[in-house]
Design a protein around this nucleic acid. Structure first.
Lengths: 249, 249
DNA sequence: CGACAGGTTGAGGTACCTCAACGTCGGTGG
DNA sequence: CCACCGACGTTGAGGTACCTCAACCTGTCG
């Protein structure tokens, strides 16, 4: 289980290229890397360090120095902010190909935690910054990632500020389905979707309680709009019904 | 009231430089322009068009083609998204120096409306894009603006998803105070802050109703934490009391 | 001055939360 | 291999923070 690439310090050792060859990377054509040609990606590779995180492990701590960026290779990560009394708002769930660590300030303004067994490809910020100066395409890609996240964040604000519990859950399920793609149709033509996060995570993402999330899911199930084969997956039987309950998206 | 610079088409006429000389621009050192030297800003100036908007006028319509960006010169603008039944979520209030029109897609994903008499400096997206390709500093500046907005959006999600009405209003007043700066102290040492937006705007920003906003403001006033000299201004008597009621920020 | 949009205050309703009990599943050790 | 354990999830009953509806107040502008 332990691998040679684990826990390596962010200082380049000249061997990372061999340990984590970008050509074989499952997210080579996504994420930051899509912007780079093979030569450029070699330079990114020189400063990158892959590392495995187990479920629940913290990747980023709110308030700590923002000196790394990460590509999510496999697994899932949640981003969140806390209030002093422990109330939590999850601002996003990340899937492979997503970038972690865009930061305007010197300190991270949010925390990041692995949801399940996860592999990240980390870059020291200094190296990333100098590469961005040398490769305008990389800078441009970063802007496009940030713009996209901003759009999602505004959609999320609409959900949190103005949607009902049923609308929030329906919207959430649809956005999962959209991101998961149209593959993986179940036996009855439904869409099988993994739910790696807990009900508590979902609640903290939607601004609800676990009980309310559970109740809405149960009601959707009772109405035969979804099925819940396991606690960590949903099958969407009628996306249309969800759409009509989600008010857009 | 009509001015020569009003309603000019985005095609450069070679006179805009004289009509809107950047050197005299009140937000020359802020916004996008801070990233540019005098020569570069001349090129930005060539493609820019200033235009005046009166209160309530729409600047950007959600769903329309995203072919302009704007610098806010003076006045105030609100950004918002709507649900099909008219529920509205305001995602931000902009002040002079802010940029409007970051967009990941071809279409705007939000609307923008002038709150009061407002002057914007507009750029066609094509021109902005080619300038960004030629001037890396401009691209970099844009990324830093986007990152900053993203951070604010996450803070806003925390407010909408997890804060009480009293906490939301207190947080809002403090963030206004912070942006307004520490100038403008009132007679009794309080901080005078203009409130150009209506109670309804504030409610739609905070995910509340106008009645709830009004009740919380009245309570803060009763507790001598704020004063309400006019309907469009607040005086913050005790920022400390607001901080303790806002849970961070 | 009259009218109207914006704002405040009150009374009652409700969507969601809180608290509590019970179910369920996956892992672990006897 | 099965029994137990604990974390996660579901369901129910009651409470409450905020919403809804309605009346009234206030300033602003023709």
């Amino acid at each position: 289980m332990q691998r040679a690439t684990m826990n390596r310090p962010p200082v380049s050792e000249g061997q990372n290229a061999r340990n984590a060859p970008c050509a074989a990377c499952p997210v080579r054509e996504q994420a930051l890397c899509a912007a780079l040609n093979d030569k450029e990606i070699g330079r990114l590779n020189e400063i990158s360090v892959t590392r495995r995180y187990s479920a629940g492990e913290t990747v980023i701590n709110e308030g700590s120095a923002a000196n790394s960026g990460y590509n999510l290779i496999s697994g899932h990560v949640k981003l969140y902010k806390l209030l002093s009394d422990g109330r939590r708002q999850i601002t996003g769930f990340l899937v492979p190909g997503d970038f972690i660590g865009i930061s305007a300030s010197e300190l991270y303004s949010y925390s990041a935690e692995a949801i399940d067994e996860t592999v990240l490809c980390g870059f020291p910020r200094t190296g990333l910054d100098s590469l961005m100066q040398q490769i305008p395409g990389l800078l441009h890609r970063m802007l496009s990632i940030a713009s996209d996240e901003l759009m999602q964040a505004q959609e999320h604000a609409l959900l949190l500020g103005r949607k009902t519990a049923a609308e929030r859950v329906s919207t959430f399920l649809l956005s999962l389905a959209r991101r998961h793609g149209d593959n993986a149709r179940g036996g009855n033509g439904g869409l099988q979707i993994p739910l790696p996060m807990t009900r508590s995570d979902i609640a903290d993402y939607l601004g609800l309680t676990t009980e309310t999330v559970s109740r809405v899911l149960s009601e959707l199930k009772r109405a035969s709009i979804i099925r819940l084969p396991t606690r960590s997956s949903v099958e969407i039987v009628s996306a249309e019904a969800l759409e009509s309950r989600s008010d857009q998206l």
